[in-house]
Structures are given as C-alpha cells and as structure tokens.
Amino acid sequence: MGLLQGKVALVTGGTSGIGRASAVLFAREGARVALTGRREDAGLAVVAEIEQAGGSAIFIAADLTRTEAIAAVIEQVAARYGRLDCAFNNAGVAGGGPIETLDEALWDRIIDTNLKAAFFCLQAEVAQMKRQGGGGAIVFNGSVLAKIAVPGTTIYSASKGGIVSLAQAAAVEFGPAGIRVNSINPSITRTPMTAGRITTDEQGIESHPYAVGIPLGRMAEPEEMAQVALFLLSDRASYVTGQALVVDGGQSAM
C-alpha cells in the first residue's frame, strides 16, 4: 500500500521540476492528484503520464498570484475528488542580481508568487480541511537560501525566509485542528529553473554557481525533493509539524 493511499493531494506548480516529480510520485503512492500550473500543455502531459501508470490526476490551469484563482482551484479539487487531504505548495519563481540593480517589478513578481500566493493557498487549503472535519498535512517548498546567504539572491531569499516562518506559525495555529504544516528547503536542484546556469567541463562534470562546496559533490534531483515532501505529507510523519527540513547535501553545514 502506498504512503498516500486513498488520499487527495494538491501540488501547485506541478508541471515541471520538483512539482512534476512530486505529482508523479504522489500518484504512484496511491494519491489522487490535482496539479496546478500556467502551461496547460505541460500540465496535461503530467496527467497523461500519471493516468498511463494507472493513477488518477487532474490539471487545473491557474495563476496563483490571483487570490480568486486559488479559491477556484480548491473548489475544483473538492468537486472532483470530494476532499483535500494534503497539499504541496511548491509553485515559485526565481530572479535576482545585485541589490542596486533590482526594481519594484521584480520584487512584486517574486514575493507575489513565492510568498503571497503560498499564504492564500494555505488559507484556502486549511478552510477545506476544516470543512471536512479537520486533519491534514501541508508542505511548503522553501529553499536553503532561507538559511544561508548567497550574493544576488536577496529578494528570492527573503521570499523563502518568509515561507519558513509562515509554515512554523501555521503549524502552531492549526495543530489543534490536526493539520500539520512543514517546509522543505532544497539546495540547488536540477530543474528547468536552474538549467540555464548549469555548465559541463571537459571531464563531463557538471557545476552550477550555487552548487559550489556541497559535501555530497552534486546537485539534487527533483525526485529526491519529492521523496522528502512525500514523507512529510504521509502518516509516517504524523508527529512532525512546524519544521523547516533542509535538504541540501550538507551545504548549510559548511
């Protein structure tokens, strides 16, 4: 029996990278999966992959920076599957540069997607879980950059630091309702978002500016992050809440 057998799981930003890997894994572990994204073709491709493997999934096209879109997502999940048991609030964007070069438009794009949307997803998810009688699990996708400093990442780091604090505060507030809230905080992971800065040397060794000095000597794969999110959403983590689990190959220990 899978770790999410019989559960309904929502994955935001589920069309690529960590979100896609998580949607596929959650379905393989027995969940009925709803995934969101802005690219319908990519979302339907993930649904097809899940269904071909015998799972159940739906794609909901949504711009989560619009709060009314978030409410519509939860309504569609409940209409299709009748409930919501767990959610991986994974959707996010990157961007940065020297502080002196950054403008308000970039600030708004990153904060609105990474932090504001995550908050209102949490709000809507908890409301649905409470309507069902309480209980559930929510995981946010943060970043090791909430814990360590790298030049050129200030706005992104601020958004992910907010995610860590949001998850901890929500865990305290919703613990009495039986709703667990945690965050995973990855280091550099091989995704479409990071691919543009990956280089390969003459020996075929890959590198990325943010992967320097990782004790395990490599970037993470999306599936490795999906496995951690799966654990935190499953009943195996039934006494884990309010935690910011760093999944960084030892980078923050340096």
Rank of each mutant, 00 (worst) to 15 (best):
A69G: 06
V77M: 13
I74Y: 11
I74P: 07
R80A: 13
I74T: 09
E75A: 15
Y81I: 08
R66H: 04
G95L: 10
A72I: 10
I74A: 11
A71W: 09
I74F: 08
C86P: 03
A78Y: 05
T67D: 12
L84V: 10
V77L: 15
R80L: 07
I70F: 14
D85Q: 15
A78W: 07
D85N: 13
R66N: 13
N90L: 07
R66Y: 02
L84G: 07
V73P: 13
V77T: 15
N90R: 00
A79L: 13
A71T: 04
G97F: 01
A78K: 14
A94E: 00
R66M: 03
I74C: 12
A71P: 02
V77E: 14
A91T: 04
A71R: 07
V93N: 06
R66F: 08
G97Q: 01
Q76M: 11
A78M: 08
N89D: 05
Q76Y: 12
N89F: 04
A72P: 05
G82N: 13
V93G: 08
A91R: 02
I70Q: 06
V93L: 14
Q76R: 14
A78C: 12
R83L: 08
C86R: 06
R66L: 15
G82S: 12
D85T: 15
A72D: 13
V73M: 13
A71D: 11
V77W: 09
F88G: 01
V77Y: 04
I74K: 05
L84K: 09
G97M: 03
N90V: 01
I74Q: 09
V77H: 11
E68F: 09
G82W: 14
A87Y: 00
E75N: 10
F88E: 02
E75Y: 13
V77G: 11
R83A: 06
G92S: 01
N90F: 01
T67K: 15
N89A: 04
A91C: 06
Y81T: 09
A71K: 10
L84N: 06
E75I: 03
E68S: 12
A72F: 08
F88V: 03
A87K: 03
G82H: 11
G82P: 14
N89S: 04
A79N: 11
N89I: 05
Q76G: 07
A69K: 11
Q76P: 10
A69R: 07
A91M: 06
V93P: 03
A94W: 01
G96R: 00
N89P: 02
G82Y: 14
V73H: 12
R66T: 03
I70T: 12
A72L: 09
I74R: 11
I74L: 13
R80E: 12
A87G: 00
R66I: 05
G95S: 05
E68G: 11
